[in-house]
Amino acid sequence: MTAIVINIALFFIGLGLFLGLMRFVKGPTAADRAVATDTLSVIGIAGLVLLAYVFGRYIYVDLALVYAVLGFIGIIVIARFIERAL
């Protein structure tokens, strides 16, 4: 039961990552790619936490926290850059 649920969840998360990546490749402007990056990083955080449970490694949770903070700061920096430079 647990394994089935986790596998279905990982399947949906992988599909989501794939669709976000498609938008990242297609996106006509840099801003579209930034939006795709934002969503991809959030999906990635959820996937990391789920993988931490699957492999039983606490260190992945720390990794997810750091990735959340860095992804947020990165998006803010990219947004400032788009606002000034394009």
Partner: peptide, 28 residues
């Protein structure tokens, strides 16, 4: 377990929205 399943479905729907919507603001 239920929350994990629900959350992953919504994550997938968000990515689908990112892919399907016609412009940047609707994608956001």
């Amino acid at each position: 377990l239920f929350l994990i399943l629900l959350g992953s479905v919504f994550l997938f729907l968000g990515a689908l929205g990112i892919y399907r919507m016609p412009d940047l603001y609707n994608r956001l």
